[in-house]
Amino acid sequence: MILVFCELKEGTIRKPSAEALSEGRRLADAAGLKLGAIFAGASCAGSADAAKYGADVIYCAEGASLASYSSDGFAQVLADTVQAKGATVLLAAATAVGKDVAPRAAARLGAGYASDVTGLAMVGGKLQAVRPVYAGKAFATTSFASAVQVATTRPNVFPLAEKAGAGAAEAVAAPAGGFKSVVKEILAKASGKVDLSEANIIVSGGRGMKDGANFGLLEALADAIGGVVGASRAAVDAGWGLPHSMQVGQTGKVVSPTLYIACGISGAIQHIAGMSGSKFIVAINKDPEAPIFKLADYGIVGDLFEVVPELTKSAQGMGIGSN
């Protein structure tokens, strides 16, 4: 069996989890295996949706001990279910929770682990993963020596595939509790906008923005085209008050949106490493020799303070953000 750990948000499967399930279905079909989905929490309401993405069985670990996320508690649920159901592959989405729990579960199972993978295949009955290393400057094909193989899938890379599965619900026992660490409180609730790592469109600014206040121009464009705003390391480190969570690059977030618009970003290697996986890249820079243009599908040599407001105005006129 291929088992996929799925996260729920307000009673709905999170998109990165649905992507992992879709990929799990594809792998299960290729290898002639069953696909299981595993949920954990105080309530698993909404888990039935896993059948839409091909789950044959939907396991639910429901219990008060799982009301708050716990690294060791959730790792125990995953490892126990893998062993009890004889799964050979455990997948999770490479989200904050997935990246926290999957390696711990892997170590508990004595299993190898591939993180943040962008390609998966079953070769001779075993998982094989392709993952970006050096923040995308190279790709490593990874094979496993262990009987169980664990991987996390990078959000926005694996296509969603709706394919009805039997979706038989089955309860699995929740641990009694007494975990070593537990999440006590969420400090800054998401602003309603998606995280950079999951965003479909990113408008990013670099040193050429000249000041943090000018990022309002990028916010306006992002709002007009349904995107979110990122920044280069140069901008984050410039003391403009931009949080590190906005940083795209090798020492920030590695992103793979459909569209990446780089404004006033020269294209240092460390930045390119974080965004070269974008499907379409637009560069707006007044320096025609900026390295970012080598990557750009569309390049605009010009003053971003003129071009960006024009883009916002035209996009609003075209009603782009509404779809």
């Binding site: 299993a111 591939a114 790709f139 094909t141 094979s143 390049g299």
Partner: peptide, 20 residues
């Protein structure tokens, strides 16, 4: 005990030239 190993390391494909 080995968990996983890299069997191939490859550079990403070059991006096609864009337009101005």
């Amino acid at each position: 005990t080995a968990g996983s190993c890299v069997t191939t390391l490859a550079l990403p494909p070059e991006r096609a030239a864009g337009r101005r």
